[in-house]
Write a protein that binds this DNA or RNA. Structure first.
Lengths: 221, 221
DNA sequence: CCAACAATCAAGCGAACGATAGAATGATAG
DNA sequence: CTATCATTCTATCGTTCGCTTGATTGTTGG
């Protein structure tokens, strides 16, 4: 009985290691960040991450084998997506360890969080209430393709690169809440900084669309 | 502004990958499982995991560099421990993905969970209440050294290998709740099975001591 | 100061990984 | 049925990883 547990432990640790290994590459993390926004085909993912097609395909397959992704065929496209919301938890856990224990990350984060209180994010709960009350403008600063895969209902899509030239689209009367891909997507930080510089009252939403969706909150298409 | 974010993303993904990589090895996962029980020196960890000393030392150092572990010197010993409770979250997230998406793990888990309802674990909250009411015997089936590093107050320590010959130490009147190192430590499953075979009423505690401690519940020494 | 022990360091080896290019497969549209 | 496009497969090459061995550093106790 206890002899058998030797092998069991080994099997579990080996399986766990395969999952961690599948997440343990910068390119694969980038791919997952994009996949968290919604289903995408290989070519689109390769383009957006700047990877060679075959290379992207191999990374995606290795993550699929490990159980991080699932794939389905649609016509001549292979559409990949995150296997599960638990994959988001994994990414969150890694991020939390990084922000508290990795020097490089602490530095980057603090350079974006320099106005500590001011950058304090709006919670999903709070945003939901203020949306109902109509006291806030929601701004989605991701690229249009990602916006198209799902966004916070009523949000305005202005990719961060277009923000300066499209300030006129945004009402000055209400506070603006900006969001993007996730807790470590810098677009929302940059957007808030730019908006404030232009005299707007702006804050960012905690995390991004993937967490909003995983929380069971409504998503518009 | 948006040009700078290219590099920022790369830095973050690289740092995140280092953390995942540090967790992505069966031996390192085994080491962390033991460290979750409390501080240990290199030699003790090498022995308990069956690793060569230098090898264990190298694995521990790589995890320390990645921010998963911290170390302190005590006399001629180097005592390692988990850097943070967030490391437990990482291990949990990996485990959750494994149980839902990895074939090998699903098989192992289902073989231990074969009596689904019967194996349903006791929650920490429930155990705490029943401890106060005195309606339960708590059984710690980990090795004595780990018990010594901290255990649920009032728990009886009977390492799983000694269980059959020490059944007399356990009262038949109350239900027994067994726990060990964590959600994937098989000792508690085996103990519950053995106890039931001997006519006891027994269940296992959800997770193990590390989660009990991380939850802020009292730990005795 | 020296002997004993804990841990790390340094070098070397085989195995696994990651990227690339080119061939092969699968699916659709004419 | 063929041409085309999306993706995967195969082979290759350089790099990194993991383990072992033996030497080195650091700390304690006599």
């Amino acid at each position: 009985m206890t002899e058998s547990s030797w092998g069991v432990k080994a099997i579990l640790h080996e399986s766990f290691a395969e999952i961690a290994k599948a997440a343990a590459h910068p390119h694969r993390l980038a791919l997952m960040e994009h996949l968290a926004q919604g289903e995408r085909n290989v070519d689109a993912l390769a383009t957006v991450t700047g990877l060679n097609l075959a290379n992207a395909s191999q990374h995606l397959q290795s993550m699929r084998r490990a159980g991080l992704l699932s794939a389905r065929r649609d016509g001549k496209f292979t559409l990949y997506r995150l296997a599960d919301d638990s994959v988001l938890d994994l990414l969150d856990a890694i991020g939390r360890i990084a922000t508290s224990n990795a020097a490089a990350v602490k530095e980057v984060v603090s350079s974006y969080f320099n106005e500590r209180d001011a950058m304090e994010p709006v919670t999903r709960r709070e945003l939901r209430q203020r949306m109902k009350a109509g006291t806030v403008t929601v701004l989605d600063v991701r690229p249009a393709e990602e916006f198209a895969l799902g966004h916070v209902p009523g949000a305005i899509n202005v990719p961060v690169g277009d923000l300066k030239r499209r300030l006129a689209d945004l009402p000055r009367s209400k506070e603006i809440v900006a969001y993007c891909r996730g807790p470590y997507c810098v677009f929302a930080f940059e957007a808030v900084a730019a908006l404030r510089a232009a005299g707007y009252k702006a804050r960012r939403l905690e995390d991004g669309l993937p967490h909003w969706r995983a929380d069971g909150l409504p998503v518009a298409l």
